[in-house]
Amino acid sequence: MNEALDRAAELISSADAVLVCAGAGMGVDSGLPDFRGATGFWQAYPPYERLGLRFEELADPVHFVEDPALAWGFYGHRLDLYRRTLPHDGFRVLREWGARVFTSNVDGQFQRAGFDHVAEVHGSIHHLQCVQPCTDDVWPADDVVVDVDPATMRATGPLPSCRNCGGLARPNILMFGDWAWLGGPSQKALDALAQWRRAHRDIVVLELGAGVAVPTVRRQAELASAASGALVRVNPREPEVRHGRGVSLPMGALAAITELARRIG
């Protein structure tokens, strides 16, 4: 392990730029729940186990049409959770390294930690759009507060409305089977990231907490490091790198960042 950490630290310290590709494991050390598998999800949300509902079933835009109180109960609770969660110290270290960010997370933790340039490929819970949608408008959810009954996980008060047509609003998050998601803001950030990558040839990619179940982040990390092989994959469960093209660190995100920072100085 020490040899792998030394090699990873060398890659980071010698690179011109650092690209962080972060999955859900990045937030676990901040206290955010791990939705890995039905068991992990139900441990975080026991009411859904009683209802027999898995994460994939709840993260479906159809509920905003058929049962808005159920849909906003889930997303309203998550919005409040993410607002109350403080990013762990690893975020600070990455910011000091001047890292650019690509993430599948919708929690806004990188922005809360002070990052200016974050490409959120699946959108953000901190922004809203119309359920229909009536326009391509996406707006901040800063003033949105959803009351949720913790026993049933259903929204109990007024639901967020579209600021254009007055109909129901929903989070600007790419859900499963989602044909109504407005991906404009995400695409704009992805285009800016692509431009940044073209301007920085000597990039090291630090992949943090990205699993294989939804491989979006892994594919981005492997693509961005394809030319150089400068990939550091941090994952306690699935750390393997293909064809030896990178460094494998079977650790949690905070532990790995802390060890790398100690070596880099």
Rank of each mutant, 00 (worst) to 15 (best):
N172F: 04
G211H: 04
H200A: 04
S14I: 11
Q109K: 06
V20M: 09
V62Q: 14
H127K: 14
L5P: 05
V148P: 13
L168G: 12
T216H: 04
A38L: 13
R170A: 01
V138W: 06
L19N: 08
T39W: 14
E238T: 12
P171K: 00
A194L: 09
A8S: 05
A255P: 10
D142L: 07
L174Y: 02
D29M: 06
F64P: 04
R36P: 09
A256K: 11
V144K: 04
Q129T: 00
M1F: 11
H63L: 11
T39G: 12
G167H: 08
T103R: 07
L223Q: 14
V241H: 01
L168W: 08
G25L: 04
P61A: 10
S228C: 06
G90I: 03
C130S: 07
A44N: 07
L58T: 00
F41P: 10
P140G: 01
L58H: 00
R7K: 15
I12M: 14
F115W: 08
I173R: 02
R242N: 14
L174G: 03
G183H: 10
W181C: 01
F91Y: 15
S186N: 12
L51E: 15
E3L: 14
F35S: 02
G27S: 15
S225A: 09
L81S: 06
A8F: 05
Q111M: 08
I173K: 02
D202M: 07
M175R: 06
Q129A: 00
A261L: 00
P46L: 07
P239C: 09
D143A: 15
H117Y: 10
L249E: 04
L231H: 01
R36S: 13
D191Q: 13
T152W: 04
M175Y: 02
V121G: 06
G90N: 07
V20E: 10
D142G: 04
L206G: 09
H77A: 13
A141R: 03
R245K: 12
R7C: 10
W196R: 12
P215N: 00
R201W: 12
S228N: 05
T85S: 11
